[in-house]
């Protein structure tokens, strides 16, 4: 079941098509990675979902009905370009943002205290924003994004500006929020966090979705039946069902080889061939990383 899906979203700025016929499906309680090179149209799509701007064509569905203006109170959005009012104090700033999302002053205060306590920053309540470091401000922004317990959380490059420890803290919170039932759209360039967090992805390039689906499926689709095998003794030549891509001799009689299986043969066929010839120490399928898929897909389109 989807929390949100789009039908044929297009957006034009002057005579430049920022988005063309975008269809994405964001399943409930998942982390959905919105990927793409700079200028692909990710931010435009996010701004359309958050109703900051409106699509020229197409429709957004939220909870299986057309999205309404009021639905923005169910969304928490952490933009990539984010800041705070420098002269305000941390506590009152968070209350202001929470009340804009429809929380009562009292509820806002309670929840802010809970989250600040959790992040161990309750002592900042009366500090001015301008006295906080960038990383500290990021924490305030993150809390403000999720304070109203939105059903849909949209995070644009959430880890930029965080040190590894705080990045981990945020990452754990994101997973925790997913467990509690939130759905997260996550836009980033950092492929390792996509690898780690995302269940589904959509790759946008040149205003179009060029790849989408579950991370698992995509990886399955782009794997090339290639295996990394560590073995003792050389296996010599193999028949034409298998092509040896690489063979490195590590020490004396110890090798690491990369072999691709052709003609739809199974991995067991390869294994049984090898066992007859060498002593197999490890046999691991080489799954493409999201990074490789991203680069190869974007380059294919670029070269067209």
């Amino acid at each position: 079941m989807e929390l949100l899906f789009t039908e044929g979203i297009s957006k034009c700025f002057g005579n430049f098509w920022a988005l063309k016929n975008i269809n994405i499906r964001v399943p409930r309680e998942s982390i959905f990675g919105l990927l793409g090179p700079n200028g692909a149209g990710k931010t435009t799509l996010i701004r359309i979902i958050t109703q900051i701007i409106f699509a020229d064509e197409g429709e957004i569905f939220f909870e299986n009905r057309k999205m309404k203006p009021d639905d923005i109170s169910f969304i928490g959005y952490l933009p990539e370009e984010r800041g705070l009012y420098k002269k305000m104090k941390v506590g009152e700033h968070m209350i202001y943002l929470a009340r804009l999302k429809g929380l009562s002053s009292h509820d806002a205060k309670e929840r802010i205290k809970y989250w600040m306590d959790k992040f161990d920053i309750l002592s900042w309540w009366n500090k001015r924003i301008e006295d906080l470091s960038k990383g500290m401000q990021q924490k305030v922004q993150f809390i403000s994004t999720i304070l109203h317990e939105p059903r849909l959380i949209i995070l644009d490059e959430p880890f930029s500006g965080f040190d590894p420890i705080n990045a981990n803290l945020i990452k754990d919170e994101i997973l925790e929020l997913k467990k509690k039932g939130s759905t997260i759209i996550f836009s980033t360039h950092r492929m390792e966090s996509v690898e780690e967090l995302c269940d589904f992805i959509a790759l946008i390039h040149k205003s179009r979705v060029i790849l989408d689906g579950s991370k698992q499926d995509i990886k399955q689709k782009y794997k090339s039946d290639t295996f990394v095998i560590e073995h003792r003794n050389d296996f010599g030549d193999l028949d034409r069902n298998f092509s040896v891509i690489q063979k490195d001799r590590l020490e004396d009689n110890f090798y690491r080889s990369v072999i691709q299986i052709n003609n739809g043969k199974s991995r067991n066929t390869l294994l049984s061939v090898l066992i007859q010839k060498v002593e197999v120490h490890s046999f691991i399928e080489q799954v493409p990383s999201m990074n490789e898929i991203f680069i190869s897909q974007v380059n294919t389109i670029r070269n067209e």
């Binding site: 109170s73 952490l78 800041g83 705070l84």
Partner: peptide, 15 residues
């Protein structure tokens, strides 16, 4: 100030 401090996009996602 709202533009240069980049608070604007946070605010207009609620207002």
């Amino acid at each position: 100030e709202e533009k240069s401090s980049r608070i604007i996009e946070i605010i207009v996602s609620s207002v």
